[in-house]
Design a protein around this nucleic acid. Sequence first.
DNA 1: ATGCTAACCTGCGCGC
DNA 2: TGCGCGCAGGTTAGCA
Length: 271
Amino acid sequence: MPELPEVEITRRGIAPHLQGREVTAVVIRQPRLRWPVPPQLPAQVTGRVVCDVTRRGKYLLIGFAHGALIVHLGMSGSLRVEMPTAPAGKHDHFDLCTRETVLRLHDPRRFGALLWSEAPLQHPLLAHLGIEPLASDFTGAWLHAALRTRTQAIKPALMDHTLIAGIGNIYASEALFRAGLRPTTAARRLSGRACDRLVTCIGETLREAIAAGGSSLRDFVGSDGHAGHFQQRHFVYGRAGEPCRMCATPVRRIVQGQRASFYCPHCQRAR
DNA sequence: ATGCTAACCTGCGCGC
DNA sequence: TGCGCGCAGGTTAGCA
């Protein structure tokens, strides 16, 4: 589930329930995540008030005056706002309680993370993140310059978070389809016009996904919290062998850097 | 520095 | 029904 749009949707869903609220209790039910949840974390935030909930790449930051909780959802993580009386289930790792609700971290595969930092943007996990793909300084000219020395294929380059923060496997394939670019094209070979197009398409892809998820924000309270059920209509992702939505040519699946890439061999020929 | 591989986990869908 | 297999939205550590 969680690439940048899902993380942003989560942020918007949980922020109203946290901002300005005092943390009344913290429950670490299952500390095993990518790294163990720090045992001193409850003492750090109990009795403190949440200032804001922000996002950097795929990281969520639950901010306090003296630092922030850093949350990463990994492959299978989700955050839900529930009533304090709701029973915790299997793979519910952690609760952040306020007087009104409980923020619950659920993560079956345990690739997620929950950490505390007094200077979150300087934290080793965040310090080297690249440009925000929805920020106004992410332009075709910027991308063209950034890719100039990259021998790597464009698709894994888009997923390099030290270059661009937050683009995952689904949206990398989707954005390249929209831009008409072959995922295997060497990044340095992209023309200025191709980079312009790609930046536009990345923005459109991410914004549309956020907008599609935004319609289900109310579900963050009291329901399954499953940000996937609004079913974005992918052009190519997960559609190997199925007809391209634009030209009906069968979509191809290849593997790049041990990750599946999907593309239309007819629509994606430009560079 | 750069680039590949393995590793961390559970769950689901598929073919037999 | 049940079992084994392959696959999954991410990222780091370690090694060449």
